[in-house]
Simulated scan of single mutants.
Amino acid sequence: MDSVIEVEDLYYTYRDGTRALAGLSFSLPRGCRVALMGPNGAGKSTLLMHLNGIYLPQRGKVRVMGQEVNARTAREIKSRVGLVFQDPDDQVFSSTVEEDVAFGPVNMGLPPAEVKRRVDEALAAVQMEEYRDRPPYHLSYGQKKRVAIAGVLAMGPEIIVLDEPMAYLDPQGKDTLLEILDRLHRRGTTILVATHDVDMAASWADLVVIIKDGRTLAQGDPSLLVREDIIRRANLRFPLVAQIFRSLPELQLEAVPYTVEQAAALLRKILAGRQT
């Protein structure tokens, strides 16, 4: 598959001397759902800022759809990669929801009819049409997150990057957000989510990238999340489903399930074997 994002030997040090990225490298295929994971301080948020052109590489390269991210291309990169911050209050600031979602398209210089079309489609995608005239400060935290996503969608990006999107959401809010992400994925959008939620990563992602100390620790399918060596080094935990089956060594499993669907299939097989 074509690589939609390529990060090659990326370094970044903040002005106070803190090194956030130290030779990070990975590539992502087009149209995939990616979970970016790692302990606090691993460099996840700093990396996301590079993918959107907010930060520029001090050393190494970042390519988005074959285009290198630099001072000359940063503006175009921002239109191709939509970044949703962890805290929606950092992103949602206009007088009404509609004005907030329209902010990006208006600043792209689009004609009013095109701005309206994009705003309508973006609000429909996150199921916030009926809130278009509301002030954002009257919304719940989860609703603000949906407005932040709508503001990104209105820009028409081919890639969407979200920083800890599940943080502080209640269970229903998390389910709603996952439904939105799945709809976007079915449209062909590449989605990268930085998260500590191993259960969400195990059940949702096509690809998991784990980083630590500014470097890539591992990259592969979600089965990485049941590898004890990686989990320990990344300061993560096993998915809850995997924890249950790891506590049952008498089953002598060749592979530990890490999603509800895998666990259900395994239990059906075990029960069927007992009935024969």
Rank of each mutant, 00 (worst) to 15 (best):
K44R: 05
D182C: 07
Y131W: 15
V193M: 00
Y258M: 08
A150K: 01
Y12R: 01
G38A: 00
A122I: 14
P135T: 07
Q127A: 15
L169G: 00
I191M: 09
L48R: 02
T259N: 05
F85L: 14
D90W: 01
G23F: 13
I210T: 03
G66Y: 05
I244A: 12
D16M: 06
P111R: 11
K174T: 12
A102E: 08
Q243G: 03
K44L: 05
P105C: 02
L253T: 10
R132S: 09
L123T: 14
R19M: 13
D133T: 10
T276I: 14
Q86M: 05
A122D: 05
H196S: 11
D87K: 07
V101Q: 09
E68F: 14
F85W: 04
P39H: 08
R117T: 13
V69K: 04
S45E: 01
V62S: 03
I77F: 05
E6P: 00
P249Y: 15
A218P: 00
S27G: 00
D206T: 06
R187W: 12
N40P: 04
I180D: 02
P111E: 13
Q67T: 15
G38L: 00
E98Y: 14
G220S: 08
V34C: 02
R75E: 13
Y168D: 07
Q91A: 08
Y141V: 08
T195L: 00
Y14F: 12
D9Q: 14
L248N: 07
V101Y: 09
V92D: 10
D163Y: 03
A125W: 13
Q252P: 00
G53H: 10
D199A: 14
D120Q: 14
G142K: 08
A22R: 13
R274L: 14
L207W: 01
P136L: 08
A194C: 03
R246F: 11
I77G: 05
D175K: 15
F103R: 02
R118F: 00
G109M: 13
A148I: 11
K116P: 06
D16Q: 06
K44Q: 02
D163V: 01
Q262I: 01
R19D: 02
V81I: 09
N40K: 04
I210F: 07
I231S: 07
D206Y: 08
A74E: 09
V81Q: 01
R268N: 03
P136M: 09
V226D: 07
Y131I: 03
D206H: 13
G53Y: 12
K174N: 01
D89C: 04
L178W: 04
Q91D: 03
I211Q: 09
E130M: 15
V84M: 04
L110V: 12
V4H: 00
Q67N: 08
D175A: 15
E250Y: 15
I191A: 06
G17F: 10
F93M: 11
L10R: 06
I5D: 01
I77T: 07
L47S: 09
G31Y: 13
L267I: 15
S79Q: 13
V241E: 10
E250C: 06
M49A: 03
M155R: 08
Q58R: 01
A74R: 14
N107D: 04
V161R: 02
A264G: 02
P249V: 01
D206V: 06
V7E: 03
S3Y: 11
V260G: 00
N107Q: 11
R232A: 14
K145M: 06
